[in-house]
Design a protein around this nucleic acid. Structure first.
Length: 693
DNA sequence: GAGTTTGAAACT
DNA sequence: CAGTTTCAAACTC
């Protein structure tokens, strides 16, 4: 595996950077152990980075954050190089990304080691690579954040052990795994450190995005390891024998008492609550808060999974890791948005109280948009911290539902590839930069972490053919500016499919049409014939005009009783009061992946927001959309990167067309605003408006 | 659920 | 670049 020249990332630079930062000072002040050197603190981040298995396909937003251009990079090399152009913080981040990739492989090896019967030569190569990489990595130190320095040679030793793991006895491997787990505990402490750091981490800058997202991955991996071992019957007495209740929380007793002060509750939900508490207290100007809370809530949910028992236990074990993993994908994507496309199809479960919690976790990234009510409600679902304030949110059913929701989130339907091995753009997952997971129905799938190299190669090849292959297909011009089609972005059609469609027979009125599917109008770049795109024809019909025609066509569609879309409409009508499909549809929500389709589908087919939701948690409903509407401006820099807090907010007094990603600082200031918006949205026709009102 | 249609992606 | 084939989703029955 190619690794960037580490000299690009001079430790001294980043170290001094961190030392000067409030984050560092805060760490320093909080750490129970005196930090002898600054590098130890830096190691906090490095160790995090080192240990975090970032996904091969970072979520688009975060990835765009790391690399302004591509959805995901072809390899870690380019990743780092690109990131290297950014600030020092970004250098840290990029390093973290790279290292986490290493660790990803590393973990893959571990898992294989402990579970598989054979070890491929490829695996061995990866290990060798790791062994080669580690010394370089560890030159920045291998210490834990608490000052529990882990000697470089220890890591090296461990690595070499793993490299030679295939020759080792089960006992030896167990020992290695134990050491690995110990390291995991340190990681968790790292997370907690960060959790505290977040309070003062405003100056940490965007680099935190990566760091924090990596935190989620850390937990993922740790949990996975533990689960795995337990399920193998090789548990080493770590915490809990019941694998169903292991995972994240099981590690907590390992936390030194001094840290416990910052982790008031060491049972399920502690992190969530403490996080939320802080979010209530602090001015939400720090994007890390959203990420953190998202990650932590995520972990909590996973922990709750342990409450499931017996019949589902096995399923839990097998699926939890995936769930977590994907949830980590979800939350690493961006601060604020929170939801990854992975989970989009599950938004529809919004009546499930779990949704509220999930959405609350989403909202935690929305800063001021997080209503105290919502947060409190969310908190109350946390068994360990609610203190039974609200029985409704504390029942085992709720917990179960909560987990079930997570499970469902992870099990949303995805690709169904049969012949492409999920290594072509045919594959939605691949195109979206995601690994395939269990819910996929694909055959001979290679789009999995274990085939990372293959995936990268495939991706490289595709990009060599078309460098923009993984770039968002639907773009939106900057607000107020004339877009490339001479329209202001205030017009709904300002979002366009970058390459345009080529429809011949669908008249751009079916989801065969990528423009239509994305809810954007056709543009001159389209080569469609007989375009009747209801979102805007390529021949330049204005919106209202095209809307009329489009409505006609939509009615045609709707007249088909079996039409899938009409089914959607029926469902949509139920909640059009609050959810504004027309706006949604017009939003250039889609990033390149077709998964965005499922998003739209899920959104429009989602169950209505209940009245209670409107009143109590209206922002939650809204954020369900907002968190998934990824308006991608023409420069392909997601809005998420331009605002610390990312809900898309439709201004109550503006035309529905003037949707924009607004900083919650400005827009999301009160429920009144939300309600006002809600009222206005009532009059917006639903999308897809296939059936007349 | 199976079969058909469709258009993007891939290939030549 | 154009034509053809492959592919998987959308759609229909």
């Amino acid at each position: 595996m190619d690794t960037p020249d580490k000299t690009q990332i001079t430790p001294t630079t980043s170290l001094s950077k961190f030392e000067d930062s409030p984050v560092f000072k805060f760490i320093d002040s909080l750490s129970p152990i005196e930090l002898a050197k600054s590098c130890q603190t830096n190691n906090t981040f490095n160790s995090l980075a080192f240990l975090s298995p970032s996904s091969l396909f970072p979520s688009p937003q975060i990835n765009c954050h790391r690399e302004s251009r591509h959805h995901f990079s072809a390899d870690s090399n380019s990743r780092v190089l690109q990131s290297g152009k950014q600030s020092n913080t970004s250098e840290e981040t990029s390093k973290a990304v790279e290292q986490s990739d290493l660790y990803d492989e590393h973990l893959g090896c571990l898992n294989k080691d402990s579970s598989s019967k054979g070890i491929s030569s490829n695996l061995f190569d990866e290990k060798s690579d790791l062994a080669i990489e580690l010394p370089r990595t560890s030159k920045y130190d291998c210490g834990s954040p608490d000052g529990n320095l882990e000697p470089c040679d220890k890591i090296l030793k461990r690595t070499s052990l793993e490299v030679a793991g295939q020759d080792r006895s089960p006992f030896q491997r167990n020992r290695d795994e134990w050491e690995e787990r110990q390291l995991s505990f340190e990681n968790e402490r790292d997370l907690r450190k960060i959790r505290r750091i977040k309070l003062s981490g405003e100056s940490a800058g965007c680099g935190w995005v990566a760091v924090v997202s990596d935190v989620a991955d850390i937990l993922t991996v740790n949990s996975a390891n533990i689960i795995h071992e337990n399920s193998d019957g090789q548990g080493l007495g770590l915490g809990i024998a019941d694998s169903g209740t292991t995972s994240f929380i099981s590690n907590i007793p390992q936390i030194p008492p001094d840290n416990a002060n910052n982790l008031e509750n060491t049972e399920s939900g502690d992190l969530q609550v403490s996080c939320e508490q802080n979010e209530l207290e602090e001015p939400v100007t720090d994007q890390t808060s959203g990420i953190l809370s998202s990650c932590l809530v995520d972990k909590l949910v996973v922990s709750d999974s342990g409450l499931k028992n017996d019949g589902k236990k096995k399923f839990n074990q097998s699926s939890r890791q995936r769930s977590i993993r994907r949830r980590c994908l979800v939350f690493e994507k961006s601060p604020g948005f929170g939801l990854h496309l992975n989970s989009l199809p599950n938004i529809s479960k919004d009546q499930n109280p779990l949704n509220k919690s999930t959405l609350s976790s989403i909202k935690t990234g929305e800063g001021p948009c997080v209503s105290g009510t919502a947060v409190a409600e969310n908190s109350s679902e946390t068994p360990a911290t609610s203190g039974g304030d609200d029985a409704d949110h504390n029942t085992p059913e709720k917990k179960r539902q909560k987990f079930e929701f997570v499970e469902e989130s992870a099990s949303c339907k995805r690709c169904n590839c049969k012949r492409s091995k999920c290594l072509k753009l045919y594959c939605d997952c691949f195109a979206a930069g995601l690994y395939c997971i269990e819910p996929c129905s694909c055959l001979d799938c290679f789009n999995k972490p274990v085939h990372e190299k293959v995936v990268l190669e495939a991706r490289k090849q595709i990009e060599s053919r078309n460098p923009q292959a993984f770039a968002p297909k639907v773009i939106r011009s900057t607000d107020g500016a004339l877009d490339s089609w001479g329209e202001t972005s205030k017009t709904p059609a300002s979002a366009r499919h970058k390459r345009g469609c080529n429809c011949k027979r669908s008249s751009c009125l079916k989801k065969y049409c990528e423009c239509f599917q994305a809810g954007v109008g056709c543009s001159p770049s389209c080569r469609c014939e007989g375009c009747k795109n209801s979102f805007g024809r390529k021949d330049g019909c204005d919106e209202s005009e095209s809307n009329e025609d489009g409505l006609e066509a939509s009615e045609q569609n709707a007249s088909d009783k079996n039409s899938h879309d009409s089914v959607i409409d029926k469902k949509t009508e139920e909640h059009q009061e609050f959810l504004v499909p027309s706006d949604i549809s017009r939003l250039p929500f889609a990033y390149s992946g077709k998964l965005a389709r499922s998003f739209l589908h899920s959104v429009t087919s989602s169950k209505p927001c209940t009245t209670q939701e409107h009143g109590l948690d209206s922002s939650s409903c809204q954020s369900k959309f907002n968190s998934n509407l990824q308006a991608i401006p023409e420069d392909e820099t997601p809005e998420v990167l331009k605002h610390k807090c990312l809900p898309l907010v439709l201004k109550p007094n503006s035309s529905p067309n003037s949707k924009r990603v607004s900083s919650p600082h400005r827009e999301c200031t009160s429920t009144t605003v939300l309600r006002g918006r809600k009222l206005i949205l009532k009059f917006v026709p639903p999308f897809p408006s296939f059936s007349p009102p």
